[in-house]
Simulated scan of single mutants.
Amino acid sequence: MNETKYQRARAVLCRTVGQPVVVEEIDVELPRRGEVMIKMAACGVCHSDLSATNGTIPMPAPLVLGHEGSGVIVAVGEGVSEYAPGDHVLSSFVSMCGHCRYCQTGRPQLCDQAAKAAISLPDGSVRTRDLAGRPLNIFSGCGVMAEYATLHVDNVVKIGADVALDRACLIGCGVMTGVGAAMNTARVEPGSIAVVFGCGGVGLNAIQGCRIAGAAMIVAVDLSDAKLELARGFGATHVMNSATPDLVKALRKLTGGGADYAFECVGRGEIVAQAYGVLAKGGKAVVVGVAAPKDTTTVRTASLTFEEKTLTGSYFGSARPRQDFPRLLALYREKRLKLDELITRRYRIEEAPQAFADLAEGRNARGVIVFD
Rank of each mutant, 00 (worst) to 15 (best):
S192D: 03
L204M: 15
P190D: 00
R211Y: 04
A243W: 00
V221S: 00
R252M: 08
G235R: 09
V195K: 01
V248L: 02
V239Q: 06
A220I: 04
H238T: 10
F234P: 06
P245K: 07
P190E: 06
V248S: 08
R211I: 12
P190V: 14
G233H: 06
L247C: 05
R211K: 14
G198I: 06
V195M: 02
L230M: 08
L254P: 00
L230T: 15
G214Q: 04
P190L: 01
Q208N: 07
S242M: 02
G203E: 10
D222E: 12
Q208Y: 06
G209I: 00
G191Y: 01
V221K: 07
V202H: 03
V196S: 08
S242Q: 11
G203Y: 08
K249Y: 07
A231H: 13
G203L: 05
V188T: 00
D225Y: 01
P245T: 10
P245M: 12
A220R: 12
R252I: 14
V196L: 04
A194N: 11
D225I: 13
A236V: 15
V239W: 09
T237R: 05
V219E: 05
T237A: 04
F197Q: 06
G235E: 13
S224R: 07
C199E: 09
A250D: 14
H238P: 07
A206W: 04
G214V: 00
K227A: 03
M240V: 13
G203T: 13
G191D: 05
G200P: 05
G214E: 08
I218W: 00
S224T: 11
K249W: 06
E189Q: 15
A216M: 14
L230V: 11
D222C: 08
D222A: 10
D225L: 09
A250P: 02
G201P: 03
E189H: 14
Q208L: 06
L223T: 15
A236K: 15
G214I: 01
H238N: 10
K227T: 04
G198T: 05
A216C: 06
H238M: 13
F234Q: 00
A220P: 15
A243K: 14
R211S: 14
V239D: 12
A206T: 08
V219H: 15
A226F: 02
L254C: 04
C199T: 09
N241A: 12
K253G: 12
A231T: 09
A220F: 12
S224H: 04
K253W: 09
A215T: 00
G203N: 13
G200S: 09
V196G: 02
L247F: 00
A216V: 13
D222W: 09
G200C: 07
G209N: 01
R232K: 12
A243R: 10
P245V: 11
N241V: 15
C199N: 07
G233I: 12
P245A: 09
A236H: 10
F197C: 12
P245N: 11
G203K: 08
L223Y: 06
A243G: 03
E189M: 14
L251F: 08
H238F: 12
L223W: 07
I207P: 13
A236L: 09
G200F: 03
V221Y: 02
G198R: 04
K249R: 14
R232Y: 11
G191F: 05
A213L: 01
G200T: 08
G200D: 10
F234D: 09
R232H: 07
C199Q: 07
K227E: 01
N241I: 11
F234A: 06
V239G: 13
M240S: 06
R211Q: 07
L204G: 12
V195C: 13
V202Q: 02
A226D: 03
I207Y: 05
